[in-house]
Design a protein around this nucleic acid. Sequence first.
DNA 1: CTGAAAGCGCTTACAG
DNA 2: CTGAAAGCGCTTACAG
Lengths: 341, 341
Amino acid sequence: MKATITDVAKVAGVSMKTVSRVLNNEPNVAAKTRERVLAVATELKYSPNLAAKGLASSRSYLLALVYDNPSPYYIAKIQSGAIDGCRKFGYHLVPEPLGLPDDAAETTQEEAVHRLLHRLPVDGVILTPPLSDSSGVIKALESMNIPFVLVAPSGQKTGISAVKMDDVQAAREMTNFLIAQGHKSIGFIKGHLEHSATALRYEGFQEAMAEANLKVHDHEVKQGDFSFRSGVVAAEELLEDVNTRPTAIFASNDDMAAGVVSVASRLGIVVPDELSVCGFDDTPLAKILFPQLTTVQQPIYEMGFEAVKILLDPALKNTPALTRNLDFKLVVRDSALIQGS
Amino acid sequence: MKATITDVAKVAGVSMKTVSRVLNNEPNVAAKTRERVLAVATELKYSPNLAAKGLASSRSYLLALVYDNPSPYYIAKIQSGAIDGCRKFGYHLVPEPLGLPDDAAETTQEEAVHRLLHRLPVDGVILTPPLSDSSGVIKALESMNIPFVLVAPSGQKTGISAVKMDDVQAAREMTNFLIAQGHKSIGFIKGHLEHSATALRYEGFQEAMAEANLKVHDHEVKQGDFSFRSGVVAAEELLEDVNTRPTAIFASNDDMAAGVVSVASRLGIVVPDELSVCGFDDTPLAKILFPQLTTVQQPIYEMGFEAVKILLDPALKNTPALTRNLDFKLVVRDSALIQGS
DNA sequence: CTGAAAGCGCTTACAG
DNA sequence: CTGAAAGCGCTTACAG
């Protein structure tokens, strides 16, 4: 059967406690003893029973990834980074959608979190958008005294750890790229009003334009909602008038940029020769479109990974709350690359 | 502090064991006693400690979703169904990518599974494609005596439970749909050679054509690899010659169908008026394309849900291995819908 | 229908 | 540097 810590202790001729010390890298073990124990552990293929460890130490060795109705692509990448992070620390990740139960329409998110983490006590929680902006969820976590990290929250909350990227700066760099390509009239399509990135990306766009002394005309800025459909509608308005038509369009995400490309293609406007198009997010769509999309790659995987590190890295233990700003990447592809430039 | 089973027992005036009986829905408890215990449990907001339960009963209340390099979209849907299934049974799902560690190029998948499930003993495993066809992984699971269910395996393995859908029948129905629309010359683009669905979908296509007494010409069948790019190449060949050009193209997945649509649009061939296009999978892409794609919706969420049921449903306990064939759905959208038909 | 005892495999707190 | 004892919060196997 499966070896236990007692088996290892017996074979190595030491006490259970010494085996425990070795396996948990605690100090105060003679080098020789340590070696012997490790050798025996390997030989017996010993691996600790998580339930027993958890019960004795009142830890669970589990981290929860709590989300609500995210894009599958986004959550999959966060999760992938978080799982890799967990593996470094002997932890496991449990994804928990925070859907409110159908039979209890009255329930608040706060209560849902309580119920969830009462059933499965975890050692930490990673909160993804839009939950990272939910004060109810944050309050519940604080009251339960469970460590947590926010992924891409909209504002800075003091005393709460977070991983994020600089949307303003990314939008600014994308705009600067277009300006460097010679564009002076640039259309912009905003995202969903309630999504925090919407304002930030627009802000970056405006700043870059202002720095270059370029005017942002009202008719060049359209309200979208991050959907392909809204990109189509916005593009139709932006491209309607041949005389006032911008030479480039910066859509706040890839889906809307795809809408722009589709309208351009229907109107016979050649991208990028007659119109440059950029998106944001670098979704799989960006590489499938023709031409492929110039866009911003967010450090989604890295955010998942770093969130785990903040929760579990012993080196960060007892550190006050900290915010990690991770690097984005401008991905230049054909949709906004003028030939030979 | 958090209430334990002893607290509930004390307040309810019964033994720990009786509380345990009530909470686990075991028989042989007086109705009155049951009520009283439940009332106290609710009052104290009692919820059992999973680690303690697990240690005592040598169960983990954890199921592993084991995958390797899947499409994020596919894995997210399987996972979503599996999580909902787990919740019905008080279980939790732990996603475990089976990546081979970088530092051990020699390691086999079999060893990777052993290592993985040795660290985290789970009560069951859900194996997603392509791992559901890996004999090494299956052997490892069998040798460790861990119950498991295959998701969409290619063949029938006796003695092993599986959830799947009928690819042959789906491809046949899609082809019949095209034939009913009046098409007689239908192009087909095959998928990746090593993927099990490839042969099945082609088989369904061939059967439907044969049943309708329609010939499948060699030049109308192209080898793809499920990528957008391969769809483009295949479409260029299929549409090259205006005289032998098919009036419909059935691509084995949506990405390749998107490639076909893109080529058609470049060549000025109007979809669906001059060319009907169908895909397979109903990925998010299908609704983003213009025109939207006629495709097959796989029961991915349902496969995740049913896999959990097979593992945990007490009603299925002690049942021999069983295979659940779940229903697909033909989703007819503009890319293959002749106006007024 | 109910309960007292033992034990699951670890860690904590203490002693030496 | 090492170990013996107690205990984490449950279930199992047994007794009545």
